[in-house]
């Protein structure tokens, strides 16, 4: 299925490390605002798929298009620009910058996009408020619990109003209750900000709320029936 309005398109993507083929003949189209979940066993290639979509890694064969733009011919600098403007990331281990406060972490992608300090502070306050972290702005990431840190990561991923948010196992490091809370927040916040959300997870709980679900098996990607 090909759609001219796709936010994300994979065309015959293959990724291998030496002889080890992780992904093969992968093709998919993700529409704007969709909430897509990619499931599979550990090591099945979910993170690799997200890395390819985010331009953090390059495919061995095939092409990835984001918002109609092919990533194949882009330089590192151009890829950085795409990530900076169009993408937001939420990682399993939060990956907040330990030497920046919570508010500064949230403001960071905006600062990278050249937003003013005042604009950054306003947006960070808004997002932190939405995510229930009003009081945490001046604290350092490691002073927060895991769930709180992941909420900061969600705020950071959305601060510069990206078109696409890529979340790699965002609940993998959290307890069940906190994980459900974070997943709900991530989904709601992305929908509220009209961002396309692609989430890699092995958690089955999220499947009910997703618009589409893909499974990776034997290096190939399969769309699950609704």
């Amino acid at each position: 299925m090909q759609n001219a309005d796709s936010h994300i398109r994979l065309i015959g993507v293959k990724k291998s490390y030496g002889d080890h083929v992780v992904l093969e003949e992968c093709g998919l189209d993700i529409l704007p605002g969709e909430f897509v979940v990619v499931v599979g066993r550990s090591g099945s290639g979910k993170s690799t798929l997200l890395n390819l979509i985010g331009g953090l890694d390059r495919p061995t064969a095939g092409d990835v298009e984001l918002l109609g733009q092919s990533l194949a011919g882009l330089s590192e600098d151009e890829l950085s620009r795409v990530r900076c403007r169009r993408l937001g990331f939420v990682f399993q281990f939060f990956n907040l910058i330990p030497t920046l406060t919570v508010a500064e972490n949230v403001r960071l992608p905006m600062a990278l996009n050249g937003a003013s300090r005042a604009e950054g502070i306003q947006r960070a306050d808004l997002l932190l408020g939405e995510l229930g972290l009003d009081e945490c702005g001046s604290r350092f990431p490691e002073e927060l619990s895991g769930g709180e840190q992941q909420r900061v990561a969600i705020a950071r991923a959305l601060s510069h109003k990206p078109d696409i948010v890529l979340a790699d196992e965002p609940t993998g490091n959290l307890d069940l209750e906190t994980a459900e809370e974070v997943l709900a927040l991530l989904e709601q916040t992305c929908r509220r900000h009209r961002a396309t959300l692609v989430m890699a997870t092995h958690s089955r709980e999220v499947l009910g709320t997703a618009d589409r679900v893909f499974t990776i098996r034997a290096a190939r990607i399969h769309e699950e029936p609704p």
């Binding site: 950085s80 900076c84 993408l87 990956n95 992608p109």
Partner: peptide, 16 residues
């Protein structure tokens, strides 16, 4: 290294 990788993932350009 990891911190720089995160920053790159967030869009920090090679020059930066």
């Amino acid at each position: 290294g990891r911190e720089l990788a995160v920053l790159r993932a967030l869009g920090l350009r090679p020059r930066q």
